[in-house]
Design a protein around this nucleic acid. Structure first.
Lengths: 140, 140
DNA sequence: TTTGCTGCAAAGGCTTTGCACGGAT
DNA sequence: ATCCGTGCAAAGCCTTTGCAGCAAA
């Protein structure tokens, strides 16, 4: 079993565990959304999946992305003045958002967890998740 | 000149500096949006301003909020599964977002700037702003 | 057979835009 | 007299929903 098949198998399990059927359309959307690192929009996901699955509808893409959110496999990135994008990286990380080219780069840094804990403990706030975006200009 | 009048005077200056007229409607929207700490939505802003300004329209509120963004006096907080809210706090800070009651509390912490600088310097990324949201449950 | 999914079209919700009237300079 | 802003209504855009036909278990 190769890499892709393993990932698909994990997707199928995740869907079935929650009572969802693992249809070809859903597997295709999941494959794209969970492996693409460019934080695609729903529309982009639709267009890409459509290449291999010409009959798929935008509605199905939206529904599947909603399932992925429910399964905690992707998170929505709502951004000002631009479209919502989807991020399959569910570990605590920082999004470096380039205001020139629109790219979003994930940045893992060992101090993120520690930072979140430090700033919340004095505020009497129980953290359960975070979203850390830094705007600026990337190397390009 | 009292506190409120000072704030209004600053608003009027800011508007005129960019060539906008300081109309009563704009001043009213600015007064509410720049002083309210609860990160109101556009709709909430409209309803509140309407109390003292019954003829104002939602369109005018949206237009004024857009001007405030352009003047860098408020920022939009786009949140998943809820309406866009507006934050007059333009200093680097953390938003503590309560998933129970929906409240958003600003948290200033002296390590924010240092944290942003530390994580970006290794990534060859020139930061110009940030948005740090921590989700969880507040004391209530 | 029963249940759930797809894909189309329509509806929804928030935000923006067009435009005529009115106010200010 | 000119310019800009307001407020209404309409349009736009992204996303969700309803539903008939279809596929899978």
């Amino acid at each position: 079993m190769n890499h892709l098949q393993k990932a698909d198998a994990a997707t199928i399990d995740a869907l079935r565990n929650k009572g969802y059927k693992a249809t070809p359309q859903r597997i295709a959307v999941c494959r794209y959304a969970l492996t693409n690192q460019e934080h695609p929009t729903a529309q982009k996901t639709y267009l890409e999946v459509k290449k291999h699955h010409p009959t798929i509808s935008l509605a199905t893409v939206y529904k599947t992305l909603q399932i992925l959110r429910e399964l905690n496999l992707v998170q929505e990135l709502n951004l000002p003045n631009s479209k919502t994008r989807f991020d399959p990286n569910m570990k605590p990380h920082i999004n470096l958002i380039c205001q020139k080219c629109g790219a979003i780069q994930d940045l893992h840094h060992e101090t993120v967890g520690e930072f979140v804990q430090k700033v919340t403990e004095t505020a009497n706030f129980a953290p359960s998740g975070q979203r850390l975006d830094i705007y600026g200009v990337c190397q390009k």
